[in-house]
């Protein structure tokens, strides 16, 4: 065992990379759930985004095009969920599960001829002198654009929900769709928009895996990241900054346990592998305890089917 091989700066830097896919997926799901839609298809939308982004990036040679295609692919897939649940009033839980299975199958079909290819590299943003600050420069200022975009999205979602009228309407729809309808707000339209946003974010998260984190295409490469994103939203009490903490915590423990494995710590590998899941859930449960307040923050209409009966 040799813990000195673990470099804290590189550890923290790779934490941000490891967390970004989950953070993107979780913040999208947060918006969808705030509008009252429980979309369990995050995993399916992520992997569809991963392959859409991968194909587009390989074909055009541009990672930017890849990320755009991933967002569009995730949003399009989420619209099948949106149409089924919002117009045909299907059960959200069952439809979401089906979406995950469908996404996994669809992506492996689309990705058949892309196995083993290398995507065009995604360059780091040049912060000039900032990147040369000892330690901090390595941790914070030597990443690709998507890391910063994901943080900007979190900030934007937070400000949107807190300060804008549109955000207030979205929260109102998630809180009581009946009352929102009675006041003349278009519940279905708001929810479709939120689902599409959730799909686009999940797609971006997936593409980050296939274009930056791994970077190549393998079937089922999301490996449960979508489910962790769902859990982070719930245990983060539907608060954007808590979701960020949750995602970074998960990413951090993942990277740390990989490093520990490499350093040969005498703990069975299985325990190390399960540690990110356990620790993330534990910490978020403790943060969201004090049941009253957490219950208050849950959208009251979450998962309930809305039908304008009047």
């Amino acid at each position: 065992m040799d813990l000195s091989t673990i470099n804290p700066a590189i550890l923290l830097a790779s934490l941000m990379i490891a967390s970004t896919p989950i953070l993107l997926a979780a913040i999208g799901e947060l918006v969808a759930e705030k509008s009252g839609v429980l979309n369990l298809g995050v995993e399916g939308m992520m992997i569809t985004g991963a392959i859409c982004g991968f194909i587009a990036a390989v074909e055009t040679g541009s990672p930017t095009m890849g990320f755009l295609a991933a967002a569009v692919g995730g949003a399009v897939l989420s619209m099948t969920f949106g149409i089924l649940t919002q117009f045909f009033l299907s059960n959200q839980v069952a439809t979401g599960l089906a979406l995950t299975l469908f996404g996994l199958g669809l992506s492996s079909l689309m990705g058949q001829s892309y196995v083993g290819l290398k995507p065009p590299p995604v360059g780091d943003i040049n912060f000039g002198p900032l990147a040369d600050i000892p330690f901090l420069g390595r941790v914070l200022f030597q990443h690709d654009a998507m890391v910063y975009v994901s943080i900007l999205i979190v900030a934007a979602v937070w400000a949107f929900l807190k300060f804008t009228r549109a955000g207030l309407i979205l929260r109102a729809v998630g809180e009581s769709h009946g009352a929102a309808h009675a006041l003349g707000y278009k519940v279905v339209a708001v929810r479709l928009a939120a689902i599409a946003f959730g799909g686009a974010c999940a797609g971006l998260g997936g593409a980050y895996l296939s274009l930056v984190r791994v970077p190549q295409w393998t079937e089922g490469m999301t490996a449960g990241a979508g489910w962790i994103a769902l859990a982070i939203v719930v245990f983060g009490s539907w608060k954007p900054w808590r979701v960020l903490i949750g995602a970074y915590l998960f990413g951090g423990v993942t990277v740390l346990q990989l490093n520990l494995q490499a350093a040969g710590v005498e703990v069975p590998v299985e325990y190390l592998s399960m540690s990110p899941y356990l620790i993330t859930i534990l910490v978020l449960v403790i943060m969201s305890s004090g049941r009253g307040r957490a219950a208050l923050n849950a959208p009251a209409s979450l998962g309930r089917t809305f039908h304008a009966s009047s």
């Binding site: 009228r165 309407i169 929260r171 109102a172 809180e175 009581s176 009352a179 959208p299 009251a300």
Partner: peptide, 24 residues
């Protein structure tokens, strides 16, 4: 003024009022 209140429990009074106005 609705019989079954068209109010949102988890929002505050001002937010509820704003939701019922055209140009708050």
């Amino acid at each position: 003024v609705f019989q079954h209140f068209s109010l949102f429990d988890a929002l505050n009074v001002a937010e509820n009022v704003a939701l019922g106005m055209e140009n708050p």
